[in-house]
Structures are given as structure tokens and as C-alpha cells.
Design a protein around this nucleic acid. Structure first.
Lengths: 200, 200
DNA sequence: TTACAAAAAATAACACTGTTAACTTACAGG
DNA sequence: CCTGTAAGTTAACAGTGTTATTTTTTGTAA
């Protein structure tokens, strides 16, 4: 009697359909437009069924936040190669970060700040740890090749991430949705400045 | 017949009471908790009266965004003094920015990103222009005293602002609501790095 | 095959939200 | 005093997230 297995599978199918429905709403109408009733309508189930799979609407969105950080890490890692010098890798990583943010704008906006409780986030999204670890080790390599090997890599990571996130969000908030030439210059300017200070 | 004047005054009083009611809700429950009905309840008027003074809920929030940028500019300007060297002034400005963000956390979160349409903002909030102009001129002074007087001050302003905003929002999102020692170090690290690269 | 228990799903409600149409009341000018 | 305008009200519309209650389906055992 593989009944339980089948039920498990069916349940997972519904769960997936919830996520894909939510995702399509995000893509077409923006992340602020997702609603339980719209999702229920899309998956052709009644509203309370969704609550058998997710505790709340926020839990559904959190799923995309997690997925976002996974994808961001993978996207950056995919562009790195061991052949490059470590400070070149950092430059590549910075540009890949920027690239990801604008290629996945809705996701990026969901990943950061959008009305989610700030304090909880770090604990609810362990994927941030994995993302951070990757960049910390990257920066550690640059430090190892520099003349100040006792620099705090975690501190520098924090600075690096802050710069990148600042660039992206000021661009998204203040200027248009698609980056122009100036902002590309700003990006390079900021990254070069950081790397120069780090690599000594 | 000062009747019209009195009515004008009364109307403005109601407008002000709407803003102060909204403000007290923001302070006690956070900016996400403000609602038209709560405001109406607080000012002891019915709901539609609010729509005689503000076009929408968003318009009320935008008022605080504008006020926020005014205050931010004033807060920074108040800490500057002509006696300091220009690059020191930039350091002071950066720290004042950080200081303001955490002293007025709800306002800062309202000023940036919180679900407001990104593209419109620049046009709807001319106060950003004034804020930007102040920092641009500050940076221009540093450039004038440096060995590369043809540096683009607006570009550098953009970088500077991005770094500051990034520092603040990564801190607010990822770590606790109150900045710790590490984040203070990150702040100084980032500011010094920027100024060093700028002042040559 | 039928009876029954348990799991799944649906209906309907609660307590909200922003916004607005329609109605009532107060009040200044003729 | 009457009348038109403006101020303020009630009540409704169309949504929202969430949940208690009820119905339906389904698997199993008699």
C-alpha cells in the first residue's frame, strides 16, 4: 500500500503549484500583488487549502527570498574561475551581484526589506549564511595576497555587501528601473575603490 | 468677514491633526500600521474627511518622506562647520547620515523603498534634489582640494550616498535594529575608504 | 458491498484594509 | 426666512489575511 507515498506526492504537487502560481503573479503583477485568493484561484483550490501547506502569506514569500539567496550565490559562483586573480574575482563578483539584482528585480526587492520583519530574517533565512560565507572566503583570498594579512575579512565583507546593496537600491529607488551609463560608472567606481583599499 | 480665513485656518488644523495622528501611529506601531480608519478615529472625524485633505494614504506617507529628507539635510548641515577641512566634513556628513537613520528609523524606512512606486519618487519628492545638492557641493569641495580636479562630483556623490544607504540598510535588515560595535567599524571603514580614494 | 472513521476540501464568516457614492446637516449671503 | 454651497456623515464596494465550521471525499475494516 503505497497510499501514503502517493498522498505525500500529491501534497507536494499542490505545494509546488502554490509556489508556481505565486511566482507567476509576482512576475506579471509584481510582488505586492500576490494574494491568497488569487493563488487559490490559480491553483483551482479553495483558500484554506493553502494554509495546509504554508503557515501564512509571508511564509510563501519567504520561500522566494530563500530561493533568491540561493540563486544569487550560484549566479556569482558560476562567473568565478580559479584562473583569475583574487581581486579580479572580487570585481567579477560585484558585477555579478549587480547583474543579478536587475535581472531579477522582483526577487531582489523581495529579498530585501519589503515589509518583512527585519530582526527575524537572519534566522529565518539560513541561505544568507551560505551566501555570506562565499563572499567572505573570496575576500579572505584577496587579503591573503595583500600586505595586511590580519585584516578582518568579515568586516570587509560587510562593507563590500553594503556598497553593492546600496548601489543597487539607490539605483532602483531614485533613478529608473533599468540602469543607465552613469550608474554603471558608479558601480565600477565603487567596486574599484573598495578593491584598491583592500588589496593595498 | 474673516470667515474664509477662519475656515482656511480650521481646515489646516484638521490637516495638521491628520499628520500628527498618523505620526503617533508610526511612532507607536510602526509605519506599516497606519490606516485611514485609525487616523479618522484619532482625529475624531469620519473617514472621508481625510480624503478632503489628502488624495490617498500614500500621499500622507509621502509627506513624511519629504519631511524626512528635509530633516536629514538639516541634520547633516547642522553638524558641518566651515572650520573643518573638506574631507573631514565629508566624514562628519557620513556619520551624521548614519546617526539620523538610526535615530529616525521609521522615517528612514519610510523614505526608502517601502512599497512606494520607485520611478515616481524622484519627481514627487523634490526634497531629494535639495539633499543631493548639499552633498554634491560638499564633495565638489573635496575634489577641488584634490589632485584630480576634473572628477565628476555627481558620480562621486552617487557612490557616496549608495555606500551610506547600503551600510544603513544592510545593518537594519540583516542584523539587529540598533547598531553594534562591528557595524560602527564597518561604517568608518567604508567612509575612510571612499574619502581616501576621493582626496588622493 | 456496505458502514464507519479519518483525512481533505469547501463554505462562510470575522475583522480588517483603501476608497467613494449618496445622503444629511450646518451655515453664510441674499 | 429661505436657499445653495460646503462640510461631514453613513453606508457601501471591493478587496485583504486568516480561521471555525461544515461538507465531501476517501481508505479501511467488517
Amino acid at each position: 500500500m503505497g497510499v501514503l507515498e502517493r498522498k505525500q506526492r500529491q501534497k507536494e504537487e499542490v505545494r509546488n503549484s502554490i509556489l508556481t502560481a505565486a511566482w507567476s503573479i509576482i512576475q506579471t503583477e509584481g510582488w505586492q500583488a500576490i494574494s491568497i485568493r488569487k493563488i487559490a484561484d490559480a491553483i483551482e483550490y479553495s483558500v484554506p487549502v493553502i494554509y495546509n501547506h504554508f503557515e501564512s502569506k509571508e511564509a510563501i514569500m519567504l520561500e522566494f527570498v530563500k530561493e533568491g539567496f540561493r540563486q544569487l550565490r550560484d549566479h556569482i559562483q558560476a562567473q568565478l574561475s580559479d584562473e583569475d586573480r583574487s581581486c579580479q574575482q572580487l570585481e567579477i563578483a560585484g558585477k555579478a551581484y549587480w547583474q543579478f539584482a536587475f535581472a531579477n528585480q522582483a526577487t531582489y526587492q523581495l529579498m530585501f526589506g519589503m515589509g518583512l520583519p527585519p530582526c527575524e530574517r537572519a534566522r529565518q533565512v539560513p541561505e544568507i549564511q551560505s551566501f555570506s560565507a562565499m563572499l567572505v572566503s573570496l575576500i579572505q583570498k584577496v587579503i591573503d595576497h595583500s600586505k595586511q594579512p590580519d585584516t578582518n575579512a568579515f568586516l570587509k565583507f560587510h562593507t563590500f555587501w553594503s556598497i553593492l546593496h546600496g548601489l543597487v537600491s539607490i539605483q532602483m529607488i531614485n533613478r529608473s528601473a533599468t540602469p543607465d551609463e552613469l550608474s554603471e560608472l558608479v558601480l565600477e567606481d565603487a567596486i574599484y575603490g573598495f578593491i584598491k583599499a583592500l588589496a593595498v
